[in-house]
Structure formats: C-alpha cells, structure tokens
Simulated assay, not measured.
Amino acid sequence: MNEIRYTTPSEQIQKLRSQNMIVIDEEYAEEQLFQCGYSNLIKSYRDPYIFISNGKKMYRSGVTFEQLQSLYTLDKNLRNAVMGAMLDLEEHIKEAAADVIASSFGVHQDEYLQFRNYRDKSKKKYCFSLAGIIETMKKALKTDKNPIAHYSSSHGIVPPWILFKSIYFSTIVNFIHQFKPAEQTKMVKHLYDPNSKIPKSVLPELMMDTLFVCLEYRNLAAHGGRIYNYECEKKLRFYQNPDSSLHGFNLLLLLLSFFKYKAPLEILEKALNNELNRHCSAFPEDVTYLGQILNVDITVRNTVWITNNSQKYHRYKHCSGILNAKGIDIKEADSQGYTPCKKCYK
C-alpha cells in the first residue's frame, strides 16, 4: 500500500518533473497547485496525458503543466455553465409545473396538495414518494421566511408558484413524475413545440428522462464533479435518436435542444464553444481526444452559424430557435454577405 504524506507545491512539481512533465513557469505552477490542490488539478485531469511504464505513471513526451491546467480550466468553466444553465432551467420548470397544478387543482394549498390529485408511483427513497413529497411541501408551508410567510399571513393562501420557490429541484422533478396523464400532457405542452417531429406518444417519457438527466448533471456540478467526460447514469427509454453515438455532454445538449425554452442550451453551447476554442488553439494535439470524449467535431476557428432562411449569422447554433444551422468561419460568412444577428451579437 502506497504511503500518503503531505507535500508542498514545490515538492509536487519535482514529482511531476520526475514523471516527465514539462513545467515551464514554476512560480505559476506552484500558485495553481496551492489554489486548486494536487488531487483536484493533477489526479483528476492527468489520464489523457499519462501512460504506465514499469508500474510508474509517466507523462507523454511534450506534455506541459500548462496543458493539464488548461483542461482543468475547461472543465471548471463547463461545470459553472452547467450550474448556471440548470438553475435557469429549474426556474422555468417550477413555473411550468406551478401553472399546471394551479390550472388543474386551484391555487389553495389545501386543494393542490390533495393526495388523490396525483399518482402514487413507487420510489426507492421515501422523500421522493408521493407521500414524502406532499409531507415536504406541507412542512415548507410552516416556514417563517418570505415569500411563503407573507402569503400565508396576508392572504391565507400560498399558491404553487410561491411554494415551489422553496422546494428543491429534485423534489419538483420527482413530483412531476407523480403527475397523472392529464397534467403530464399539460407539462409537455409547456416544454415542447407542438410542431416538433418527435412522436407525441413518447414526449411524456422523454420529458421525464430529460429532467432526470438534467438533475444528474446539476447535482454533479454542485458537488464539483468532472463534467467534460461524464457519462450520465440515466438512459433514455422510449426516444431513440438515429445517431446512437450521442452520449455524455452532447446528449445533454441534444435533450435541451428539444425544449422550446433555449436559454439553458445557449448557456452551455456558448461555454463549450468558447472553452474548446481557447484550449484547442493553445493545445491542438488535444483536438482528437476532446472530440471523441465530447462527441463533437472540433474546428479551431471563429465559427458562426447560418441558415438558408436568413442572411444573418449567429454566435449560437440555436439562437432564437433556428433549426438546421450550419457552422462556417466568420470570414467566409462575411464574404458571402451575411451580417451579424442583433440578438446574439449585441
């Protein structure tokens, strides 16, 4: 069993050099190791750059500390983007669910929290069972914090859009899973374009699969997990995309692209494009690896998106809900007479 002992950033750098890593700026490396930690920075992101020689981890020829640190930064910025996108999506989902509940059962908590209004699907954890969810929501009603306390004392009513502000996203997602078919159909209408080519019969299942995938990524990001090469445990059940190679982060983007509300998708696409361009411009040897892991074609260029229906080019592939966008270099777009979209090029 290997002994675990405390080492200083200076000692850690000497170890990295003994493993064939190039450290160009030792002062910068020490600062990064001190701020981020050897385990977070090195152990979590070294796999693409190492091989085993005589039982010892060694870095491939030419690998620098700055290269590994750049991959760490790429993942950190993706993680921050996932957190921001999921918080945005959470607000949207809560408002949609509140609208469905209020329209079906009324705005008084004694009406919309009736057990009979929902299905009672079996859950491994009591807190996500129908009884557990209703119990959680009733406890939340007793808080002395606003806005719930204000509505309770001033109106005697706490409508669902107020109550849901204080309820965890995981509870809301599992609550939606307990909706009866009529309410699930209403949720689908909130979230998906009625002209979507996806068969309407699978939309409720696709909605739930998507929400559970998003919840998984949200929890991963909240706990500092590695994002860029994460493979989600939740698998799609009824919707099968013709491109079965979609997986990982690209699968999350696909699922978000089906929603009418595009803001979470745009947050993630912007972060992904920016980080891939930044990292791969500096370290083009990583293009193949990241392309395979993220399942995307990486071209290090200033890419914009165009369609056959407009002479505008866009910074984001799904700006304003455009479909079938094609990526081209911005210089090529300019030469063809395209001009920047006023929305995404403010």
Rank of each mutant, 00 (worst) to 15 (best):
K186F: 07
A149E: 12
Q32M: 15
T7Y: 12
P340N: 01
Q336T: 02
T339H: 14
F115R: 11
K139V: 03
P204M: 02
L254P: 03
G225V: 00
E95W: 08
L254A: 08
P181F: 03
K186L: 09
Y126D: 11
D75I: 04
N2P: 12
K317E: 15
E205Y: 09
W161H: 15
H92I: 06
V202E: 06
Y151N: 06
K200C: 11
Q67C: 07
D47I: 10
I198H: 04
L74P: 01
Y112R: 00
Q14G: 09
L78G: 01
M86Q: 05
L130M: 15
I134V: 15
S170M: 11
K124H: 10
Y151K: 07
R315P: 06
S70M: 10
Y316W: 11
Q178S: 12
S18K: 09
M208S: 03
I328E: 05
G132K: 02
L78P: 06
A81G: 01
K234P: 06
H190Y: 09
I322V: 06
S244R: 13
G106R: 02
K234H: 15
S152F: 10
T299S: 13
W305T: 02
N229K: 05
F283K: 01
M86W: 00
M208E: 07
D75V: 03
S70K: 09
Y192L: 02
I298G: 00
K342M: 01
L203R: 07
S53W: 09
L130Q: 13
K186I: 05
H279C: 10
C280I: 04
S61M: 12
F65Y: 06
Y45K: 08
G321L: 07
K15S: 09
W305H: 05
